[in-house]
Amino acid sequence: MADDALEAFATEVGARGPVAVEGARTRWSTGGELEPGARLLRAPEGIVEHRPEEMTVRVRAGTPVDELHCELAAFGQRTALPRRGGTVGGALAVGEDDVCALGRGRVRDALLQVRYVSAEGAVVTGGGPTVKNVTGYDLCRLFVGSLGTLGLIGEVILRTNPVPPVSRWLRADGTDPFAALDVLFRPSAVLFDGRATWVHLEGHAADVEAERRTLSAVPTAGGGWTECEDGPVLPPHRWSFRPSELRQLDGAVLGAYVASVGVGTVFASHSPPPRPQAPALRALAERVKHAFDPGGRLNPGRHVALLAP
């Protein structure tokens, strides 16, 4: 399907010279600093087509996530993209999940179709418009979290989800967040900052109420579980752990933090160290990079092994 905005974007990208896409710069340094000299471009903007009855939305990469969510909310829908500002393309390139990933789903599962501009300046389509699809290789997954180093995302189709009728945040001090996760059926989030625990419950009113009653059985340091407006403020940097490793977090290393229990993501004030990759994996990743961007012109300086610095 020819799309003028995409074609124009492809022309801008062209086939030569280092280029990078700039979104809202909310996670600009993720994966390392851009090499100087790269041309900075903006991805096209705008919601192309929302199909509420299909639970899909076709949106251009430069569209702010907030704007997308605002549009979807009018239809009682949302996506898995994180609510931390920025653009749709940026969120996908970084691959960051929403803090309520348990309830809203993972970003990598939400991308149904990606249209990107290749290192050669061609528009390429991966995936397809339907909610289920195993046609050919899964370029969508490959692109989520690829930091724009394999192709520059121009337009995507995302899965949308219904917004549950009721949503509640509860907070308690001195409680065991793992016990909370254990007793609850499907919480949207269980967050822990080393002292306080926040639980996000969503669903039908009676179910949320029932979960709340279940939760009240989890002991607290007094004061019990109290309702609050929202979850905690998230520190800027993302660390990634196994869910079980969250039992032994070290505040001295992380700084102030909020851990997403059951998921393994930790938002911290200190930045994470680069993580080692096994040599065989590194070699494979390099072959992938080389296959898509032989000249290394896309987002030079960014490396996927590095999470948020």
């Binding site: 989520v144 080692p276 994996l281 999470l307």
Partner: peptide
């Protein structure tokens, strides 16, 4: 032999696990 993905929330590297599946 390579290990793709991992148990942590966001394993390092491209999502080659996702690419391998299917």
């Amino acid at each position: 032999l390579v290990r793709l993905g991992g148990l942590d929330a966001e394993p390092p590297a491209y999502d080659l696990r996702g690419a391998f599946i299917g």
